[in-house]
């Protein structure tokens, strides 16, 4: 890949640059300004230096929600990536059923985030929802509104329901790109199904899976609407993730200064993780 060098290409990128810069750079600079001050209103504000950062970094509630966030995003990846690959392997490769299952798989992805929350809010209730009713009649005491573990598991199950399809569709398109000759060679060698997966399919899936891991990690790391609708972050703080803690602080309590500092720290974590993933991705492409 030897692309010609031309700085004129900047003119083609300029509209995107201006558009995104308007919504990204100005707010980011403003957040930095907020984070350094104690703000009461536009004219009454005091410079406090790095005080808010110190407070946020030592705030145990926020540390808890950071840990909770990492556990949540980790479990999301651990469940959705293998399950997604599995579903993709089970899908018919071509024909009518392939298209039908593709369409059904894509369905949850198109449900608005708050409706996802609503669907599971209804589905999980013991009085009006099938899931909650079924669990309770099996003798399992399940109530996502009162029991932190149930709430946590419901949020996780909801995310699996909502997003595993994305991984499955990514892997499916990766699998379809493998030429038939590979499979024929494998069947001549009498390779086991596991060997076919390990040495033919998985290597081919690597680049799409990295996209999947990146998107899933990032989106679960900023999850807000679904748990907000389902549990409102409770019971207690058991399902309060970072975005919700931040929104509560910024919009609910209007603590602009600390919320600014929190935003910057949050953003830096995102920047670090997405840089690591992105570097891993581009380097696996080059090899």
């Amino acid at each position: 890949m030897n692309k010609p060098h031309s700085n004129k290409a900047w003119f083609l990128v300029l509209p995107v640059f201006i558009l995104v810069a308007f919504s990204a750079i100005v707010p980011l600079m403003t957040v930095v300004n907020y984070s350094l001050q104690d703000i009461f209103d536009v004219s009454t504000r005091y410079f406090v230096g790095t005080e808010w950062y110190r407070e946020i970094l030592n705030n145990s509630r926020l540390q808890d929600s950071l840990v909770r966030q990492f556990i949540f995003s980790g479990s999301v990846l651990l469940i959705e990536i293998p399950l997604g690959i599995g579903v993709a392997l089970m899908m018919p490769k071509s024909g009518k059923w392939s298209v039908i299952s593709l369409l059904i798989l894509a369905l949850p992805l198109l449900v608005p985030l708050n409706v996802v929350g609503t669907i599971w809010q209804i589905f999980g209730r013991a009085d009006i929802g099938l899931f909650g009713w079924a669990l309770n009649s099996l003798g399992i005491d399940y109530n996502y509104a009162a029991n932190p573990i149930d709430a946590w598991l419901t949020v996780l199950l909801m995310d699996v329901w909502h997003w595993t399809s994305l991984v499955a569709l990514l892997s499916f398109s990766g699998l379809r790109a493998i030429p038939d000759a590979y499979y024929q060679a494998a069947s001549i060698d009498r390779a086991s199904a596991w060997a076919v997966f390990r040495y033919i399919q998985l290597p081919k899936l690597k680049s799409v899976l990295l996209i999947g891991v990146l998107l899933r990690f990032m989106d679960s790391f900023m999850i807000y609407t679904e748990p907000f609708v389902l549990t409102g972050g409770g019971p207690g703080n058991s399902t309060t993730f970072l975005s919700q803690a931040l929104t509560k602080m910024a919009v609910g309590q209007f603590d602009i200064g600390p919320a600014g500092a929190f935003s910057i720290i949050y953003f830096l974590i995102i920047l670090l993780v997405s840089w690591l993933f992105y570097t891993a991705m581009t380097h696996s492409d080059n090899k």
């Binding site: 600079m29 403003t30 930095v32 350094l36 230096g49």
Partner: peptide
């Protein structure tokens, strides 16, 4: 611009 709440240190930082 006043809503951006500029301060000297942060302005220096971005410059």
């Amino acid at each position: 611009m006043s809503w951006m709440a500029w301060t000297t240190p942060s302005a220096l930082f971005f410059i």
